[in-house]
Simulated assay, not measured.
Amino acid sequence: MFVRPCWRPSSEQDAVDLIEKNPWALLVSNGADGPMATNLPLLFDHKRSDKTVLIGHIARANDHAALLSQTSEPMLAIFEGPYTYVTASWYPKRDMPSTYYYTAVHCYGRVALQDEPQLDESVERLTQVMETPIPGGWKTSEIEREAITRRYKSILGFELHIERLEAKFKLGQDEPLKDALAVADQLERHSTKSDLELAAMIRKQNAGRED
């Protein structure tokens, strides 16, 4: 991923936070007939405090699952955070071309397969992470245990051990500060959660600039 030094997040924790807030990922692998890609949620393994392992599962009927089982080649997990088209009309002097502000994290690493107890723990954690914010959210305990475990024959659990992480927060750091802050001002006038989050990220990543 092309990342100018000014587009790197102010800390690695910023990249971790983006993944935790936006766990819907694109997993990409090199297959014999070309790239293979699957959209799926990936979470950090909460038992590892160093945030170097992602956990997930995939349908065994997916050809991608067979590739995960057979290869030791590195994989790539792509996460996207908030993004927006930035019209030049938002700039105070309208003297910059329109562009995109966006955030992304790429995680490269190798896969290790999970056994059934590990898969069971991963599924329970995924359920808790996704359901907890929902008022009256669902719990796996609401149905018979066998209704969950019988599905494990059809899914493959895995870990992605991160060997390299690249993060790009393109949020106006290479533009005049007044223009970047003007974009944040515009986004704060919107009511969508993603625009408000992006505005906050623009202000954070441009903090300390004097130009």
Rank of each mutant, 00 (worst) to 15 (best):
T84C: 09
Y85R: 06
T87Y: 01
A88M: 09
W90T: 13
W90I: 03
W90L: 12
P92S: 09
R94Y: 00
D95H: 09
T99I: 02
T99K: 01
Y100K: 09
Y100D: 00
Y101H: 08
Y102Q: 03
A104F: 00
A104C: 07
V105Y: 00
H106T: 03
C107M: 01
C107N: 04
Y108K: 04
Y108E: 11
V111I: 15
V111T: 09
V111D: 05
A112Y: 00
L113D: 05
L113G: 08
Q114H: 07
Q114G: 05
D115H: 14
E116C: 02
P117H: 03
L119P: 10
D120T: 14
D120S: 15
E121P: 00
V123C: 06
V123S: 08
E124A: 15
R125T: 13
T127M: 08
T127Y: 00
T127Q: 04
Q128H: 10
V129Y: 05
V129G: 00
V129W: 01
M130P: 01
E131L: 05
E131V: 09
E131K: 03
T132E: 12
I134L: 12
I134S: 02
P135W: 00
G136D: 02
G136V: 01
G137E: 08
G137P: 07
G137S: 07
K139Q: 15
T140R: 15
T140V: 14
T140P: 06
E142K: 09
E142H: 05
E142G: 13
E144V: 01
E146D: 15
A147R: 03
T149A: 10
R151V: 10
R151S: 13
Y152P: 07
Y152A: 10
K153H: 11
S154F: 13
L156K: 12
L156S: 04
L156D: 03
G157Q: 09
G157T: 08
F158W: 05
E159M: 12
E159D: 05
H161D: 04
H161N: 12
H161V: 08
I162W: 06
I162Y: 07
I162L: 03
E163T: 06
E163R: 08
L165A: 07
L165T: 05
E166S: 06
K168L: 10
K168Q: 09
L171D: 02
L171E: 02
G172K: 06
Q173D: 04
D174H: 14
E175L: 15
L177P: 10
A180Y: 02
A180P: 04
L181G: 09
A182V: 04
V183Y: 03
D185R: 10
D185Q: 10
Q186C: 04
Q186F: 08
Q186L: 01
L187V: 05
E188S: 08
R189T: 14
R189M: 12
R189A: 08
H190P: 00
T192S: 12
T192L: 06
T192G: 06
K193E: 14
K193Q: 13
K193D: 13
S194E: 15
S194C: 01
E197D: 11
E197Q: 14
A199E: 02
A199R: 05
A200E: 15
A200D: 12
A200K: 13
M201A: 13
I202K: 05
I202Y: 05
R203C: 10
R203K: 13
K204H: 14
